[in-house]
């Protein structure tokens, strides 16, 4: 369920909650949960009304980060809704949500997961040794274990680019201008401009799985987030190539009926 604001959905506590049984003691991760202070609050705004599922963001990310085949830092999930002749297709571009209260940081047994300035949740590869507990607790399936290096990989807000004044690789390439990234503390930033434009058009800004209470730094406009939510991977899962199979583009109802 997707709900604007902070009201949690009515779900079973064990399902809704993050898997805190895998968390390390707070003293272990408290420092790493604190982003180095530079006055910035980095966030994402995904306008799914504009997205038409072209996959440019995914391939740009693959190219930028040498993401191995079969694995995805970024993935756009399709879903068709409706019955002929009234059918629409929705697209949901997914990636790490850069949660303020990141369960992956809490669960990481070796201390590799941490925050970079601005709040980017990132991984220290000097430390990461492949426990995979982060994958177990991520409510969004945003982390994969590299098949060769066996280290955790996820979106890092392309900080190696942003430090040099560039944008994350997925943002400028988007032909429909659906992806917005930047400093939420800067009233002049492009992301604030885009979010305000949506608000002024009476468009609801939503977040994914707020019942997990991880305070993600990603907001969505458009119905796709709600429609596609149940297909987003869950704890213990990573983005899968199966999402691209045309047999899975169908709405939930149709998928049931045809099996």
């Amino acid at each position: 369920m997707v709900v604007a604001g902070s009201a949690a959905a009515a779900a079973e506590p064990s399902e809704a909650a993050v898997h805190s049984d895998k968390f390390q003691p707070e003293s272990f991760w408290k420092d790493r949960m604190q982003a180095p202070e530079d006055g910035k609050k980095l966030g994402w705004f995904i306008d799914t009304r504009r997205c038409f599922g072209c996959h440019a963001c995914e391939v740009s990310c693959k190219s930028e980060n040498d993401v191995p085949l079969g694995n995805f830092i970024r993935q756009t999930i399709y879903q068709d809704e409706g019955e002929y002749p009234k059918v629409a297709r929705m697209f949901l571009p997914m990636s790490c949500q850069h949660c303020e209260d990141a369960p992956c940081i809490k669960a990481c047994p070796c201390g590799a997961l941490h925050k970079e300035s601005g709040g980017t949740v990132a991984i220290d590869y000097n430390t990461c040794c492949g426990h995979g507990t982060c994958v177990d607790v991520c409510p969004y399936g945003a982390i994969y274990m590299d098949p060769v290096a066996k280290q955790a990989v996820k979106c890092h807000n392309c900080y190696h680019r942003t430090e040099l004044g560039m944008e994350p690789a997925c943002v400028p390439t988007c032909p429909s201008e659906a992806l917005h990234f930047g400093d939420l503390n800067d009233p002049e930033s492009e992301i604030n401009r885009a979010m305000n434009e949506a608000r002024e058009a009476d468009v609801e800004l939503t977040q994914l799985r707020p019942e997990k209470q991880t305070r993600p730094r990603m907001w969505f406009a458009g119905p796709a987030a709600e429609v596609i939510e149940e297909r987003i991977p869950k704890e213990g899962e990573s983005y899968s190539p199966d999402a691209y199979s045309i047999f899975n583009w169908k709405g939930g109802k149709e998928r049931e009926a045809s099996t």
Binding site: S63, D66, N126, C128
Partner: peptide
Amino acid sequence: PGACALPGP
């Protein structure tokens, strides 16, 4: 491209 040399701990 695509073969990522992640370093290991």
